[in-house]
Structure formats: structure tokens, C-alpha cells
Design a protein around this nucleic acid. Structure first.
Lengths: 366, 366
DNA sequence: CTGAAAGCGCTTACAG
DNA sequence: CTGAAAGCGCTTACAG
């Protein structure tokens, strides 16, 4: 009964611990003991040495699948992100991997839903029986699901009581989930409020929102918080245009706002990359940032300081998101129930914001 | 003999196919047949239905580790990258995942060497017995190793005949490896030559190289190709400063070159992000890009068009690297020996390059 | 100090 | 159409 995997690659057949045992003239269990580092006091040094030599000679590498099955754990966690193209997720991984490593866990990243890898326009479900939470093939101990689409979050978390029992999961940057799943989120509403306060203090009232047309909790929250904060301002008005998170699309959207007769004096952008597009739209119209137009970003990725002028934005502690998320997941795996956490963003004021040009100033402000 | 994994989480115990079988009143093999989709003609529709209902009721999810062990394959490939913070690797993943999905494979990403997750300054070796090629915990079918450190490439590939037999691997963007391992590389030397030709045609002779102090084949190759191409130019000279791939460090390095008495008229940067630093150094000195200083990047990531002026750079087909790499790996898994491939870069001329200012012009050029 | 054996949860020939 | 059984390669109690 040869498994089909073997049949395909007949030339290559990895040695097993049995082969090593035979080579060393010992039993298979001795090999396992020695190579597993649990031999002291149980196997003679001489035997251990011969086992190691035999393993080396054969190029033995333990079979992970067998090990995982036997131990009932893989000590591997899957970090699911919507895309790897966004610079935001690098630090999230770094934070998660750091904490994981300390506990002997590995982190592996995958996109969901699939980044449309087949290019068919529809997302590929590689495991029809397994629902959205299941990873396709990997044996894992838990999932860190970051920045899930808001629409699927509802369904997923809706059915989460069941799913959750099956693979321990923590949701990151995906909004509150009650007590159904542990969550770690950013204080994006507060961050947006800080931006509006900053702009208001400078004298801005006509705010343009260049919004990311991305179905995620964080962007919904940003839009809602912005609207609420601006309309609470005396004389405050919001105009809004939506775009994809890329420079060209953002430039177009920003341009639409700048071409209005009631041109905003400040553009609040949902993302630093969108702000780069706003810069371009401004320049194309001969508007100076920040003299003629203030621009703000969100996230504080590397791009924010690469731009000229450097971008006023809200720093989100991405690495901390990974750190806290992994900590929560390890808690969960240990049988605890980590409480939801919110990580505050921080307004970083740089050169892209200034008082509105005199002609643009609202008469009611000083 | 309860495996230790079980003991830790006594409350949660996932149902197995045996549980489903009991629930449905059938044998375990029938459950496997039905849920594996191989039941038509072998199990009655009624039985199949009851199995599916039982599985649903118990929230059954097949154990991947067991499946992997049994099948001898995981249909999962590991993409190893030096860091996830660089925007370059997103498209590589996308390309690899697309091809993989078409063949029923999944791709999972991990950094190596570990992105220093423990923050100790030394890289963590989670599996001391397993050498650099081994993934830490995951059971995988193969490895796509991208942009490996040049120093480890030598040792790794040196011992690769042995390693290679154990986990099929393809090296991406890591330089030629003879016939020891299949490789996919970029034509970075040609790309660098194209940059120099472009600058030379504009009249530049004093070239500054803002070099990435990163131990990778691609950067060594860029430096060598640049030096060779410039010194082949009549009157061509190269000055060089090294930096990390971040804006601040790049700005410093570029500044050192710009402060020389024989100030270069063009800065060739090893990376688009470095070019952003060069822009800043130029601005800080009142130099206009491109009127007073030409700047070029490399890679053509999103940043290149976010900058002002937009950056002349060499586009590397990152997604294609993933595509070709995965294709090669699938070939390898099928027992073929994919030949090494080189993907050409493409010079993208944008607004950051122009003829040198009159006073800077080499008298010998037109 | 060493080995024989159980068993993790699957898939799949094989026997009925 | 259905079930009993083998076996993937490990780890680890258990017996000697």
C-alpha cells in the first residue's frame, strides 16, 4: 500500500528513522530518543554518537507530518492577511513572529481570500468543505486573522462559535466581535478625531475625505468617525470621494474633490499611499501642500516620510498588533480567554498640514 | 497513551472521522470516502447524506497532519523571504500563489533568517538539527527561497546536493547556482547597464552610487555592473556610499556624496526607497531633481510613482519571479530538472533624470 | 541502557 | 454498497 505521493517521485525517497536505526544497528525508538534530544541517562553516549553519525550519513530529516500527528500540535500559527502587497503587514508579522519564537512557535503567512491568485476574478476556495476559517492544507494550531473584509467578518464571526471551537483564532484589526472571538483593534476612531481636531485648530472647516473603497472595518470606522467629528464642528462640512489604495486611483479621487467649486482646504486620506495621490492631484492643479492645501494620511508607513513635504498622519502600531495578537492567541491555546484589546494610534504632525490660505479661511474662525 | 498536546487543552477535543462514523452509524472508512468526495458508486446516496449531516453536526474538520502523513504530501510550498517589510515580496507571493493554486497547491510565507524575531541580535535557529533549508515546523513539499543572503547562499548551496535531495527547492533572486539548484534570477546587471547608458546619453560622467549595505547577490551584482559600466565610459567615475534600505540612512549616504568637492551629477540608487532618501538629501542642499541632480532607483515599486518627480528606475518583474519560480518548483516536484532562468528588467524613464546642469557638464561630451 | 509496541487520524486497497 | 485492516513516520510509556 504505497501512498500515491511516493509513486510520483520514485527516485527520491527520504530516509526515515527506521533507516537510520538500521544503519546504526539500533532500534527505531533509540533513534527517536537520540535525535529528539531526550537520550541523556537513557542511551549510552557511544550509541547516541553512532545514531547521529548514521543520521548525518543518510541525510535524515524527521518527517514533520508524522511528528505533528503524533504530538497533536504543530507549534505553527497562520497569519491571514488580505494582501501582502500593502506595507502594513510586514511589521504585523514581525511582531507576531517575535512573540511566537519566544514560545517555540513559528508563524506562517497566507492571504485570504486568496488574493485572487487564479486571476479569475472570483476567489478560489481550495477546500470547499472547510469554510472560511480553515487553512487550505497546512496543519496549524491557530489563526491570526488580520483586517478581514467587513462583510465576511459578519458571516464568519456569526458562525464563529462553531468555527472557533475548531481552530483557535484571534481577529486583528477587524472590529469588535463581542465575546465570540478575541480581538485586537486599533483606536482608529480616536485617531480620526485627532486628525480633525488638529485640522480644526489650524482653522480648517471644509474637509475632503479621500476614502478607501475597501470593505474593511477600519475604513468604515474611519469614515464614520470623520463625518461625526467634522459635522460636530461649527461650519464643518465633509465632501467625500472613494478610490482604490493606489496612487493613480487616489489622485483621481482627490482631483474630483479639488475641482469642486467648494474646494476643501484639507484632504483627509484613508491611507498614506492615498495621500501620495492627493499630493499629485494638488501639484497638477498648481496647489502647494501645505500652503494651499493640507493633506493627512493614515497608518504612518515608510512612505509617509519619503514624501515631500513629510506627511501628517496617524501612526498605527502595526508591530504591536502582531505582538498583542500572538499573545492573545497563545493565551487562547493555553485555555484562557483573552479580553479584547484596543491599541491607540498616535497623531504625528509633520509638514503636510498648515492653516488654510487666507482666502480660503472660514470667516468665523480667528 | 495520550499525546501531550491533548492534555493541555482538555476542554477542546476536535471530533475525528471515527466520531462522525459513530454519529452516522457507519464505518470510519465510509466517512473518509464520503467526505473525501470519492464515494460515487461506492456508497449509497442516503448513507452519504447521513455522513455529511453527522459531520456538520459535530463540526468535523479533517486532521491535516494525519492526512499529510498518509498522503506523503502536503501540497503546500513555503516561500522564504528575507523580510516581509520590503514591498517587493508581495507580488512575488501573488505570482507564486497564482500558479500554485492552479495545481492545487497552497503557498505560505515565512522569513529567513527569522527576521530576528527574538530581537536578540542573533538569528534564532529553532531547529538545530535541521540546517538552514529546513522549515521550522511546517510540513511542506518544497521551498521557494527568495533573495537569500549571498554569504549563506555559498554555504547553503555548497551543501545543497545533500539538502536539495531532502526538500526540493528553487532559489529566486539569489544568483546562479550552477546545476545544484534550479534558479530564477533577474537580469540586474543588464538593468544597471541600461541605467548607465541612459545617464551617459544624457551627458553624465560623474556617477554616485548609493549602495544598499545588504548582503544579497542582487546588490553585489548591481554594484559590480555599475562600476564596470561607468569606468568603461570615457571620463566616467564612480563614487560610492553605502546605507541601509531606509529613507534616513539613504539620505545620509546620498548627502555624503553630494557634499564632495567632485559632486556627482547623477545618483544611482540601489533601490527605489534609497532614491527617496536621495531626493531628500538633494532638497536639503537646494538641489533640484532633475535639473541639478539626476536620480535613479531600482525595482519600480509603488513608491517610484508616488515620488515627485516620478522616478526613473528599472522595473523588475517581481510577480513573474513568483510565477516562474513556482513553475520551476512544480517541475522539480514532478521529477523534472528546470533550467535556470533569467528575467530581464526594464528601464523605465520618468522625470528624475535629465542632462546635467551646464556648469556640471563634462567638457568632452556634446 | 535498549527494544517492542501502541497509537496519533487519516486514505485506500482489499474482502465480502 | 460497506467494513475491517494496513500503514504513513513519528513519540513515548512500558517492559526488560
Amino acid at each position: 500500500m504505497i501512498p500515491p505521493g511516493r509513486r510520483k517521485v520514485p527516485a527520491i525517497s527520504r530516509p526515515t528513522s527506521k533507516d537510520v536505526a538500521q544503519e546504526a544497528g539500533v532500534s527505531q525508538s533509540t533513534v527517536s530518543l537520540v535525535l529528539g534530544g531526550k537520550w541523556t541517562g537513557r542511551v549510552s553516549p557511544a550509541t547516541a554518537r553512532s545514531v547521529r553519525i548514521a543520521a548525518e550519513r543518510l541525510g535524515y530529516r524527521p518527517n514533520k507530518a508524522a511528528r505533528n500527528l503524533r504530538l497533536g500540535t504543530t507549534r505553527t500559527v497562520l497569519l491571514m492577511v488580505p494582501t501582502l502587497t500593502a506595507p502594513f503587514f510586514g511589521p504585523v508579522y514581525t511582531g507576531a513572529a517575535r512573540v511566537a519564537a519566544r514560545h517555540g512557535f513559528g508563524v506562517v503567512v497566507s492571504t485570504w481570500p486568496e488574493d485572487d491568485p487564479a486571476g479569475t476574478g472570483e476567489t478560489v476556495d481550495r477546500t470547499p468543505r472547510n469554510g472560511p476559517w480553515a487553512s487550505p492544507h497546512e496543519a496549524i494550531d491557530g489563526i491570526l486573522a488580520s483586517s478581514m473584509a467587513a462583510s465576511t467578518t459578519a458571516t464568519t464571526v456569526g458562525g464563529a462559535l462553531r468555527e472557533y471551537r475548531l481552530t483557535p483564532a484571534v481577529m486583528l484589526d477587524s472590529g469588535p466581535a463581542g465575546d465570540r472571538v478575541p480581538t485586537v483593534d486599533f483606536g482608529v476612531a480616536d485617531g480620526m478625531r485627532a486628525i480633525v481636531e488638529h485640522l480644526a485648530a489650524l482653522g480648517h472647516r471644509r474637509i475632503g475625505h479621500v476614502a478607501a473603497a475597501v470593505d474593511q472595518w477600519t475604513f468604515r470606522t474611519r469614515a464614520d468617525a470623520l463625518t461625526a467629528a467634522v459635522t460636530a464642528l461649527p461650519g464643518g462640512t465633509v465632501t467625500r470621494a472613494s478610490c482604490m489604495i493606489d496612487v493613480t486611483s487616489a489622485k483621481d479621487a482627490a482631483g474630483r474633490l479639488l475641482d469642486r467649486s467648494d474646494r476643501p482646504t484639507a484632504l483627509v486620506c484613508d491611507d498614506d499611499l492615498i495621500a501620495a495621490g492627493a499630493y499629485k492631484a494638488a501639484r497638477a492643479r498648481g496647489l502647494d501642500v501645505p500652503a494651499d492645501l493640507s493633506v493627512t494620511g493614515f497608518d504612518d508607513v515608510l512612505l509617509a516620510t519619503a514624501l515631500e513635504p513629510e506627511l501628517t498622519t496617524v501612526r498605527l502600531p502595526a508591530e504591536e498588533l502582531g505582538t498583542q495578537g500572538m499573545t492573545a492567541l497563545l493565551d487562547l491555546l493555553a485555555g484562557r480567554r483573552p479580553p479584547p484589546r484596543t491599541l491607540p494610534g498616535e497623531l504625528i504632525v509633520r509638514g503636510s498640514t498648515a492653516p488654510p490660505a487666507p482666502g480660503d479661511k472660514d470667516p468665523r474662525t480667528p
